[in-house]
Design a protein around this nucleic acid. Structure first.
Lengths: 327, 327
DNA sequence: CTGTTAGCGCGTTCAA
DNA sequence: TTGAACGCGCTAACAG
């Protein structure tokens, strides 16, 4: 593509048309009140006449700020990210910031590149559930500043991060299932490299340690509907009476396959999810899941960003919003 | 937020460190082969040493191009948009373009503003299923050039647009349902202002005109799962034997409520969707729907953009990718 | 209140 | 092959 950033008139032409200097045009366009009303009108007229639109790009370069945040997500197909997004959008627009989204489309190898490209065009980045190895992350983060991390932590003490307390959610689910009399659970793991899978597994180990009567089989899963669907055979083969799926999408996929196979849920097999996406309510039967305040997470991510940019004290990162169970 | 666009070293510092001019650094950074190998190495070293990253913003301003496309969508919760997105991403990245997403979050009134903001930061815009009134659209489009429209048309003859042949899809569904013996259908309309709802309604009217034995009730629907869920009572009250839902999401929501109510599908009531999103396959029972080549749509949108920017002939817009039915 | 000057950070002519 | 000079389009500091 050729030169496409500016086709219309430039500030100089408006200035000439109005018989003033470019600085004056700039002032009028930015609503500065230090311009004589009559001359301001003249400028506005000229601008309207020529259909003048200031170049955001040039403006950004000059101001040193683009008033845009980038949110980088691994997979837009997962509704949970939409909630985070809405949270960021709501919070940032209150401060006249726009939100742009970059998706890495599950290509973990490109995550760094996508994040950097996004950062190059925005004032800050919110990295949501990145999947890259810790080492790569640690190297990337400094180049992204200001940046905040969601569902991932870092050794950089001055880079804030927000992490859902997955362990607590898992404990809730296990309590719930054990309370129903289940002794043999199956855990459908997250995708390879998923970081938030670790605390879940730890929490399960913890639960088993505390309840000797409990047994948990770990099965290959994933983070998509399809992964859950495909995992059904394994689940049945395990003979577990209840399944803890990595998230709602996999739980939903599993449920779909079970329904197809005539396995009754929850009589024949209990299935639980994680995230409490809208889909969970409409599953058949409705999914037992763990509510995670995703929108709130997005809002807080924006807040942390604002704090870090204001150069305030290093925000207390790692505070964990508590998930609450829901059935 | 303060000045955040450039914290690192600038091209001048690298030049100084390497003992060359900024022009030479620029050449090296952009892979121009007209630089003596030894001096190029020196520059690269200096750049690495200082951890130099060229400012994409300044580069864009200078080049007049940002190598970024914006895709503006009304609602990321609808998976069909993800497919379009992937299509655009795949096609554009082959030409070293990045894709950024802007969501209007269903706030039709803000669509214009969001699109303009997006355009201000990118070289081009792909406007997917905008919901704003035609008048507003016609006024907006010229300001967005280069732009291509998806699922919407315009009077601007030089602005390409790509439209799914919704009518054909509807005809397929009606044929299918009529073939099954259904005589009384209910149509769950799209959201207020949805443009692609119009051809659907027309196609239904058309079908009724052609088959006197057919009757179609139009009911208030929407484009979300929830809307479909809420519409169930109306649907049952209509006593129709088959439902044509606006899209897969509403069909899915309706299905969920019907399952809850103990209405057997498709024995008691047939339900069809539109779009063929992944969810349709996993519904219970699997949804009869119309496959729409969304990813292909995204790819073609990018192609049209490339053509229009190349200043080629006005692309034959309005060509309609044919949907194909699926059960 | 307005204009002049300088500069944001980089790419690219044009000479040398 | 290299560098000096100018331009991208706009805003900010300073003078007047």
């Amino acid at each position: 593509m050729g030169r496409v950033l500016k086709d219309g008139p430039k500030i100089g032409e408006v200035a000439a048309a109005a018989g003033v200097s470019r600085a004056t045009v700039s002032r009028v366009m930015n609503g500065q009140s230090t311009v004589a009303p009559d001359i301001a009108d003249r400028v506005r007229e000229a601008a309207a006449e020529l259909n003048y639109r200031p170049s955001t790009l040039a403006r950004s370069l000059s101001l040193g700020r683009s008033s845009t945040v980038a949110v980088v997500v691994p997979d837009l197909r997962n509704p949970m990210f939409h909630q985070v997004l809405r949270g960021v959008m709501d919070a940032s627009e209150a401060e006249d910031y726009r939100t742009l989204v970059a998706e890495t489309a599950d290509r973990t190898a490109d995550e760094s590149a996508v994040a950097q490209e996004a950062r190059a065009r925005c004032d800050a980045v919110i990295l949501v559930n990145p999947r890259m190895p810790q080492e790569a992350l640690e190297e990337l983060l400094p180049q992204l500043r200001p940046v905040v991390l969601v569902n991932r932590t870092t050794a950089h003490e001055d880079i804030p991060s927000l992490v859902i307390d997955h362990a607590q959610g898992i404990h809730r689910l296990v309590d719930h299932l054990a309370g129903l009399g289940h002794r043999h659970l199956a855990y459908l793991r997250g995708p390879a490299g998923s970081i938030s899978d670790i605390p879940r597994r730890e929490a399960l180990a913890d639960a088993v340690a505390r309840r000797p009567e409990l047994r948990v089989d770990h099965l290959a899963g994933g983070s998509t509907i399809d992964a859950g669907f495909e995992a059904a055979d394994q689940v049945l083969a395990s003979e577990a009476t209840a399944v803890v799926a990595f998230n709602d999408l996999t739980a939903f996929g599993l449920l779909a396959r079970l329904n197809e196979s005539g396995v009754r849920v929850p009589d024949g097999l209990s299935v639980t999810g994680f995230d409490d996406i809208e889909l969970a309510r409409f599953a058949n039967p409705a999914l037992t899941t763990v509510n995670v305040p995703h929108a709130e997470l997005g809002r807080r991510a924006w807040q942390l960003l604002a704090e870090v940019v204001a150069g305030g004290p290093v925000p207390a990162s790692g505070r964990r919003p508590r998930p609450s169970s829901r059935s």
